[in-house]
Amino acid sequence: GKMTGIVKWFNADKGFGFITPDDGSKDVFVHFSAIQNDGYKSSDEGQKVSFTIESGAKGPAAGNVTSL
């Protein structure tokens, strides 16, 4: 299901970062391709987002990331 969290950091040059879930669980990796914004796929530190957890090649990753 959908979770909410805060972007801990995001490196636009490398195209990835981490989200800290609101439920206190482990930080989740986020790749720019998962960000659902139109246009520039980046996110700012401290941005509140909703997301799903997908199982990626390197473990859990955020999917369907949407700014709230």
Rank of each mutant, 00 (worst) to 15 (best):
N64R: 06
K41S: 12
T20S: 10
A34R: 03
A57L: 13
G5D: 02
S67R: 12
G63S: 13
S55C: 15
A61N: 09
G59W: 08
D44W: 15
N37D: 12
S25E: 04
S55N: 14
A12R: 13
F10P: 04
T66L: 09
K2N: 09
G39K: 09
A62C: 06
A34G: 06
K41T: 13
K8W: 04
L68P: 04
V30P: 00
F29K: 01
V28E: 01
S55F: 15
D13L: 13
E45D: 09
G39L: 12
D27C: 09
D22M: 07
T52W: 07
W9D: 03
I53Q: 04
F51P: 02
G1I: 13
K2M: 12
D27L: 06
I19E: 00
A61E: 15
S50Q: 09
A62G: 02
N11Q: 03
Q47L: 12
M3W: 07
T20L: 08
S33L: 08
I35A: 02
S55A: 13
Q36E: 10
K14D: 04
D22V: 05
K14S: 07
E54L: 13
G59Q: 05
V7K: 00
G24V: 02
G15F: 05
A61V: 15
K8A: 07
G59H: 05
E45K: 15
G5F: 06
A57T: 13
F16L: 02
G15T: 05
W9S: 01
S33D: 05
I6Y: 11
A57N: 10
D22E: 06
V7W: 10
D38H: 12
T20M: 10
N64V: 06
Y40C: 14
Q36T: 11
G1S: 11
K14T: 06
D44Q: 15
D23C: 09
G46I: 09
N64F: 09
T20I: 12
D44P: 15
G17K: 00
K41H: 11
H31R: 03
Q36P: 06
Q47S: 12
K58Y: 14
S67V: 15
A57K: 12
S25I: 04
S55M: 15
K2F: 12
V30E: 01
M3A: 06
G56D: 09
L68D: 06
I6A: 05
F32E: 07
V65K: 01
S67H: 14
E54H: 14
Y40K: 08
G46C: 13
I53T: 04
D22Y: 05
G59N: 06
S50L: 08
A34I: 04
G63A: 15
G59Y: 07
G15L: 04
P60D: 08
S43L: 15
G24K: 05
T4Y: 08
L68G: 05
G15H: 04
K58L: 11
K14M: 12
S43P: 15
N11C: 10
K58I: 08
